[in-house]
Structure formats: C-alpha cells, structure tokens
Amino acid sequence: MHRRAFVTTVAGIWLGCLGISSCSSAPSATTSATNMAGADEAVDLTISVAASVQDAMKAVQIAYEAEAPQVSITYNFGSSGSLAQQITQGAPADVFLSASQKWMDDLEAQEQLLEGSRRDLLLNSLVLIVPQGKDDVTGFRDITTDKVGRLSIGEPASVPAGRYAREVLISINMFDVLQPKLVFGKDVRQVLAYVETGNVDAGVVYATDATVADRVRVVATAPADSHSPIVYSIGVVADSAHAEAAQALVEFLVSDTATAIFEEYGFTPVN
C-alpha cells in the first residue's frame, strides 16, 4: 500500500506549496488560524481520536503541521466511549473525533462541544477477519462451528466497532450462541492484535483496520443493513483554550489534501 511513501509525498507537496505562491491563491483554514492567533504564536492542540483512525490521522498531522508550523498536535488514541468519558471528566482535549454518533450526541447534549463545530467526516464498513493461513473460515456462517474457538469483538458498551459487531451478530441470530466464544477488546486495534497474533481464531473490525494489517485476511464484509451506519464525527471541545485553531484543524480535515489521505487509508469521506 506504500503508506510511508504516500505520507512523505503529501508532506513534500505541502512544504513545496508553502514556498510557491502559485500553489493556491485562496487562504486555507490553517492560514486563517495563523492570522487569528498570530504567525509567531505557538499553539498546542490535543486531539482525542478513535483508535481506528490513528494511522490516517498521523499522516494528516504531517501535512497539517507542514502548512501550519506554529501548530503542534498531540494525539490521544482510544475507544470513542472512553475518550468521551475522559472529556466529560475534564481531561484536556481541543478536538474529538469519534467513530460513533452516540458519543458525539452525548457530549453535545451535555454542551461539551462548541456549538456549530460538529461535522460528519468519514464512513466505514465492518469485516470478519482471520489470521493469515487460516483457510477453513470463509464467512460468518463458520463462526458458530468448531472452526472458530474464540471470536473477538470490541467491548460493545464503549467500543463503537464492538457495538456494530454486536448488531451484526444479532441480525444473523448468532450473538447469543456465540457468548462462550467471545473475547472483548478495549478498542478495535486490540481486536486486530488478537487476530494478528493468533490468540483468537477470528475477529470483527473495521475494513480500514484490516487494510493496515499484513497478518490477517478478510473473509467477509457485513451487509450494510445489518448494523447502524458507521459515521465518524468530529467537533471542537467546548472547553478548548484554542477554539479558533481547533476549528481551523476541523476545516482542514475536509480539505482536498486530508480527503486524499483518508481515501488512501480506505475511508470514505462523507462529502
């Protein structure tokens, strides 16, 4: 997939554009943030991000900090539910990117998001994966058989991928019978790791997670109508001390540059 080369290329393009005025005549979201905060004023943004987006967001960081060198980004990766709880409890965060609408809805209801800053950003799908070399599992119908002794999904109460996986298993009348086999992960990347290492025989993760793992194989994609729509939303945290710079980052994430990065990592931009 050449992701490292892709990231380097993106950074190079944007560094080049900084020195060539013809790259763009229109001010970017980052330029606006620079004008508002002052070109020499350093801004440190803390971004709480759903674990499933971490690879793409690391690539975004390279492109964004090249365009806005006065902005430094620190990521806090985890399950959306845990991150939302941290924000509610006062943990420092300027922007929240959630893999579930539920947690954004909860924060919005508690007035924890800056009014008008919330945007739907990305779409994803759900897949069944097995370790490379395990060829006897070909679809969801096999997970109730002796071919699968342990199946991992995210913890449904706090991990959106786990909640979506539970919906899928309920829709195909397998959730109850699979209870003895289920191994829950604290986030979707832990589920992926369980499958990669062979600690479980199969797992349900986002399609984008499977694309960044060389030691797993996708055997089935869950039908879109078997679970709630997988929509990633983003918004500025109401208590952010850098609301303008945080909003500029949110706007950058819907730019052509960020969209290309997300697509490279398998996400579908909402717009």
Rank of each mutant, 00 (worst) to 15 (best):
D214G: 15
D201G: 10
A220C: 10
P229L: 04
I230A: 02
V188M: 12
G185T: 10
T208K: 05
V236W: 04
L192V: 11
V236A: 06
D225I: 01
D187A: 11
V237I: 10
D187E: 13
T197L: 12
R217D: 11
V237R: 05
V188K: 05
G235C: 01
E196W: 04
N199K: 14
H227C: 03
P223A: 10
Y232G: 01
R217Q: 15
G203E: 01
F184R: 13
S226E: 12
G198T: 09
T208M: 10
K186A: 15
V237N: 00
V212H: 08
R189P: 01
V205M: 09
D225W: 01
G235D: 00
E196G: 03
V216H: 04
A210C: 08
S228A: 13
V212T: 14
V191C: 09
V231Q: 03
F184H: 14
Q190V: 14
Q190K: 11
S233K: 03
D209V: 08
V205F: 09
N199E: 13
D239W: 03
I234H: 03
V216E: 02
V200Q: 04
A222Y: 01
V205E: 04
R217G: 05
A220D: 15
A193K: 14
V205D: 05
A224T: 11
Y194A: 09
V195N: 03
V219S: 07
V212N: 11
V204M: 15
I234K: 04
V212A: 12
E196Q: 13
G203T: 07
T211D: 11
R215N: 15
A193W: 09
A202S: 08
S228W: 08
G185V: 07
F184P: 00
T221C: 00
D214C: 08
V195C: 10
V191A: 06
G235S: 03
D201S: 11
V216A: 07
D201Y: 06
H227R: 05
E196D: 12
A220R: 00
P229D: 06
V204N: 00
I230Q: 02
D201T: 05
D187P: 09
A210W: 09
V231E: 01
A202F: 04
V236L: 08
S228P: 10
T208Y: 06
G203S: 08
A193L: 12
G185Y: 07
K186I: 12
G198A: 08
V236P: 07
Y194P: 02
G198V: 11
E196S: 14
S226Y: 14
A202Q: 02
G235H: 01
S226H: 15
L192G: 04
S228R: 09
H227Y: 13
Y194S: 06
D209I: 07
P229R: 05
V236D: 02
G235T: 05
K186G: 13
Y206V: 10
I234L: 13
Q190I: 12
V212F: 09
Y206T: 13
N199V: 11
A220W: 05
A210N: 11
V218Q: 05
R217L: 11
P223K: 09
V200W: 01
A210D: 03
D225T: 07
R189T: 13
V218A: 06
G185N: 09
V205Y: 08
A210R: 05
A210M: 08
G203Q: 01
L192K: 08
R215W: 10
A202R: 07
G185M: 03
Y232L: 10
T211M: 14
D239V: 10
G235M: 02
V200I: 08
F184M: 14
A222G: 03
